[in-house]
């Protein structure tokens, strides 16, 4: 027990500080990717519902491919494509090769993956809004963006939140995959700590506990958010089918 506490202590002989720094990186990437994914998802959902036939087909290809190919493979492809493009652009502008920050790369890669799932979730949620509300907004002559902000987003919140909560949990867990590209998030820091001290069980269990805390806290947060978004609506449990 004494040994475990020493290994996990926050100051340098212990590795606790490294784990917490990894956790911070993981959360940063998860938050950024989730946000980026939401933006893509909102645009994608609107495109799928209101876009022309070509937009719709292209979006269908995007969501199908991203959801059928393993995240690990997508991460590698997007990582290489992204760094290649940026390097080509910077060389064309006369700068040398640039070092891409791990956080930015992680957000870009996971955001595109999250966007595909978010598109489907938000599309379902928008479709669940009673049509009359959108027609009423149109009848008042609201421009599309104002309609999105004032009517569609508030009205679809309660339908979208359960799916988005799941998506956020996937985002936190998918950050672990960036360890394979060698980025220093929680899982990678844990592996480094474990392999240099040979205390595999201690560190992997500690990291598992950290992930679990994040999961449980977010589940509680989203439950409250859902209760808030649903206020004034009849509870689902009492509805008789």
């Amino acid at each position: 027990m004494q040994e475990v506490i020493e290994l996990l202590s926050l100051s340098p002989p212990g590795w606790g500080g490294n784990l917490l720094r990894g956790l911070m990186h993981s959360l940063q990437i998860a938050l950024g990717a989730f946000g980026f994914g939401l933006v893509i998802g909102l645009a994608g959902a609107c495109g799928k519902l209101y876009g022309g036939p070509i937009t719709r087909d292209l979006l269908a290809v995007y969501t199908t491919v991203v959801r059928a190919v393993p995240e690990l493979v997508l991460i590698l492809i997007l990582y290489y494509v992204g760094s290649d493009l940026i390097n080509k652009a910077s060389e064309a502008m006369g700068y040398g090769r640039v070092q891409i920050s791990g956080v930015a790369a992680g957000i870009w890669v996971l955001g595109i993956v999250q966007g595909a799932y978010a598109t489907e979730i938000l599309r379902g949620a928008i479709k669940a809004i009673p049509v009359g509300q959108i027609e009423a907004a149109r009848a008042f002559g609201m421009p599309p963006l104002m309609m999105l902000r004032r009517v569609m987003i508030p009205a679809m919140m309660s339908f979208a939140i359960p799916g988005l909560a799941n998506l956020w949990l996937i985002a936190t867990k998918d950050t672990a995959l960036l360890a394979v590209v060698g980025f220093n998030e929680l899982t990678q820091e844990t592996r480094q700590a474990a392999s240099s001290t040979r205390a595999y069980f201690t560190f992997f269990l500690a990291a598992g506990a950290l992930y679990l805390i994040v999961t449980l806290l977010s589940a509680r947060f989203f439950a409250r958010l859902e209760a808030w978004a649903r206020k004034g609506q009849p509870s689902l449990r009492t509805v008789k089918v």
Partner: peptide, 21 residues
């Protein structure tokens, strides 16, 4: 809850490196 709340990569490494050692 534990399985669904932690990344699979971490579980694989815990089992392989942990049990393996």
């Amino acid at each position: 809850t534990v399985i669904r709340g932690t990344p699979l990569l971490l579980q694989i490494w815990l089992i392989y490196y942990g049990l393996g050692s």
